[in-house]
């Protein structure tokens, strides 16, 4: 019986971890290239979900088209945010871009309250097939789990392919080390950074839609907790490392589910674990598990 509980918790942890990993891939990619903690990542996620919801509910699109539209529009949103708010501050002190990113997050939340209203909406636009529960003996697995795992691995491979097998990816990695030199090498830095943001935002929207399929409630502040958790996952795996984000996401999801599974009276403190892990890691191993060595720029 104990073993069944354990296995069930592992399955639940895989689902949650897959979600965290999916969000963290986008987060870590933007950080790895721009060295900017994009506070607005969770809010772009939220906007992507709203876009998808409205595309289906208000414009009568089929659910898969609505999802694609939501992801594409989130890409546009990311493009706009980078162009308007982050680009002018690229050469300013790093803390200024951080403050602006916080302002951007606050702006996106407030705009969502004004445009969509503060009342939570139900995200029930996808076929019920995904919430179907498969039963193997004592174990229950939601179909969504396989779907999320599949998407996470596909996107991970896609991002890795982009970063390490294409010319654009080489330019992105070059920007991460030295922007002026990259631009001397003939790469269009502005365009590459825009592209990074578009891809990061589309990843955020994808993960947001998956998140909404698991927790089908949409509201303007829904992005904060996934955003923070994804950041923790990214730090666990070594922020900036894409495979690390995957591992970090799974570790974080497993830890949360297992601790709550075995100590149910700690359930209220679930979010605390993630933050404690974050603080401890920042203090003793800020490079995370997958150490990406980078020389400090002085």
């Amino acid at each position: 019986m104990w073993l069944t509980d354990f296995a069930q918790n592992l399955i639940n942890g895989t689902l949650l971890g897959g979600l965290y990993a999916l969000i963290a891939i986008g987060y870590t990619m933007v950080y790895g290239i721009l060295r900017l903690i994009n506070f607005a990542h969770g809010d772009i996620l939220m906007w992507g979900v709203y876009f998808a919801l409205y595309a289906v509910v208000a414009f009568g699109m089929p659910w898969w088209l609505g999802f694609l539209v939501g992801i594409a529009l989130a890409g546009f949103l990311g493009f706009g945010i980078e162009k308007i708010a982050y680009r002018p501050l690229r050469n300013a002190p790093r803390i200024s871009s951080l403050i602006t990113a916080i302002g951007m997050s606050f702006f996106l939340e407030s705009l969502a309250v004004v445009v969509f209203g503060g009342i939570p909406k139900s995200f029930n636009i996808y076929p019920k097939f995904f919430n179907h529960t498969l039963i193997f003996g004592h174990l229950r697995i939601q179909t969504l789990t396989f779907f999320i795992l599949g998407i996470t691995f596909l996107l991970l491979l896609g991002v890795l392919w982009l970063l390490y097998r294409t010319k654009t990816g080489t330019a992105m990695r070059a920007i991460a080390t030295d922007i002026p030199t990259t631009s001397l090498m003939g790469a269009n830095v502005d365009r590459i950074i825009s592209l990074t943001f578009i891809i990061g935002s589309m990843l955020a929207a994808t993960s947001g839609i998956m998140w909404a399929m698991r927790y089908p409630q949409v509201q303007p502040y829904m992005g904060f907790v996934p955003g923070m958790k994804a950041f923790v996952a990214a730090v666990i795996g070594g922020i900036g490392s894409v495979p690390g984000a995957l591992v970090g996401g799974f570790l974080l999801g497993m830890t949360e589910i297992l601790v709550v599974g075995f100590f149910p009276n700690l359930a209220g403190y679930r979010d605390v674990f993630a933050y404690v892990i974050l603080i401890v890691l920042l203090m003793f191993r800020p490079t995370g598990i997958f150490t990406v060595y980078s020389e400090q720029k002085v």
Binding site: A85, S96, G103, M104, F106, F107, E109, S110, V113
Partner: peptide, 15 residues
């Protein structure tokens, strides 16, 4: 929620 939005815009413009 409009007042928060205005604050957010002012904040970003100042930055």
């Amino acid at each position: 929620g409009m007042s928060m939005l205005i604050f957010a815009v002012v904040f970003i413009l100042i930055m």
